[in-house]
Computed example of a mutant assay.
Amino acid sequence: MERIVATVLVVCCAGAAFADSYSLTIVTDKGVAITAPQEWSRRLANAGISSVRIRSGRPGDQADIEETPLATGTLYRVTGVLTSGGKLALPGESFTIGQTAKLRDYLDRVLADGAQAMTAERGRYGLTKEQFEHAFTELGKPIRFSTKGKPLGALVDKLSAETGVSVTIDPLVAPTLSRLTCRDELQSLSYGCGLAIALKAEGLAMAPEKPRGKPVQAAIRLAGDIDDAWPIGWPTKARGTELAPKMFEKINVEIDGFSLQEAVDAIGLRIEMPVLWDHAALDAKRIDPAEVQVKLPRANMAYHRILSRLLFQARLRGEVRVDESGTTFYWIYR
């Protein structure tokens, strides 16, 4: 059976003098029903894609997207293959004849984000490697002002202003966020890690997302509404002695008559890194470090062992973590 090609040209002008456009070429494989091109043409027209022209196929046709700069914008030449199984294969996705609305959405995304966005491999948060690396770098910029007791909204505003990553806040969250203050001193940590800590304390979370036709942005929502929140700390290949050498220094110690908060605060001054608490976890278990009395018999031990022994008395744990820029901090959690 002779191969047949249907070509559709759609121009999205929206009243603008400068506009991108796309052409869609559907190449039929062997075994495709002879009536298929006419049926696809009809369905495309019903979906708002008109001016379908049927012509003979050409050797070498395959799924592809070519970008051609024009005086009035960019022309995206999209080629798809209609298989004998009835699916239209386009770069990155495939569609059945009952999914013409999704096909139109696909073409709209081509116009909004370009050909590369349709074919690039995507990883965490649905971002391409380049998009994730850009977000990671920008969110790795340091917080340069004191945060404890300051409005949480100020930290959000600073992130947007100093990193270039715009922030969107769930309308259900915005009124609450405007009334909250930051519980911790996060100065010197990165914006990404610092904001993740501040938000978690209030039952909120942040995750990067890529809206159509826009740069990657940070979305703030209720923690339960985000499946993969921006993490508090990142994996590192550094060994403990390299990452936090002070934690392995031994001292003579004996603790009695002090609260967990007092003991940890005193150690925090010596280990040369911020000590931060998972307030949400503590609140959930009604653990108040200022009310938990701790003891430690006289001994000679390293700081990391001292902290571990003290935190265990409140059924807590702690570990050294690193933010996006490699700054270390001690995270206490349950």
Rank of each mutant, 00 (worst) to 15 (best):
L103S: 03
P91W: 10
E133R: 15
L127W: 04
I97P: 00
E93N: 13
E121C: 01
G140D: 10
A120W: 03
H134N: 09
Y106F: 15
Q99M: 07
E130G: 03
A115D: 11
R109H: 15
A117Q: 13
Q99C: 04
V110Q: 03
L103C: 09
S94R: 07
Q99K: 09
I97A: 06
Q116I: 02
R104D: 09
D108K: 08
E138Y: 04
S94A: 02
T128S: 10
L107R: 01
D113V: 03
D113A: 12
F95S: 00
G98H: 00
L139E: 00
R124S: 08
Q131N: 12
V110Y: 02
G114D: 14
F132R: 00
T100M: 01
F132T: 06
A135R: 02
E138S: 12
L111F: 05
P91H: 09
K129D: 11
Y125I: 05
H134W: 09
R122A: 12
Q116H: 13
E133C: 07
G126N: 04
H134M: 08
E93V: 08
T137V: 09
A112R: 13
L127M: 06
K129Q: 10
A117V: 06
G92P: 11
E138R: 15
E138F: 10
F132V: 02
Y106D: 12
T96I: 04
E93I: 05
F132C: 01
F95P: 04
Y125T: 03
L127F: 09
E93D: 14
G140H: 05
Y125R: 01
G114T: 09
A117S: 12
L107W: 10
H134C: 00
E93G: 02
I97H: 01
E121R: 05
E93M: 11
P91M: 11
G123S: 10
T128A: 03
A101R: 12
R122I: 11
G140K: 08
Q116A: 11
E138G: 04
T128L: 08
Q131P: 04
E93F: 05
F136L: 08
T96A: 07
F136H: 04
S94G: 00
A120E: 05
Q131I: 07
E93Q: 14
D105T: 06
L107M: 09
A115R: 08
E133N: 14
L107S: 05
F132A: 08
G114R: 15
M118R: 12
T128D: 10
D108W: 05
R122C: 14
A112K: 15
L111D: 04
G126H: 09
Q99T: 05
Q131F: 11
A101L: 09
L127D: 03
Q99H: 11
R122K: 15
K102L: 13
Q116V: 06
E133D: 15
F95E: 03
K129R: 14
F136W: 11
R109L: 09
A120I: 06
G123D: 08
M118N: 06
E138Q: 15
E121V: 08
L139V: 12
K129L: 06
L127C: 05
E130M: 12
G140M: 05
F95H: 02
Q116Y: 10
F95I: 06
D113N: 07
G123C: 02
Y125K: 01
Q131C: 12
Y106S: 14
K102C: 01
L139C: 06
L103W: 07
G114S: 13
R122Y: 13
Y125V: 05
T128P: 03
T119E: 02
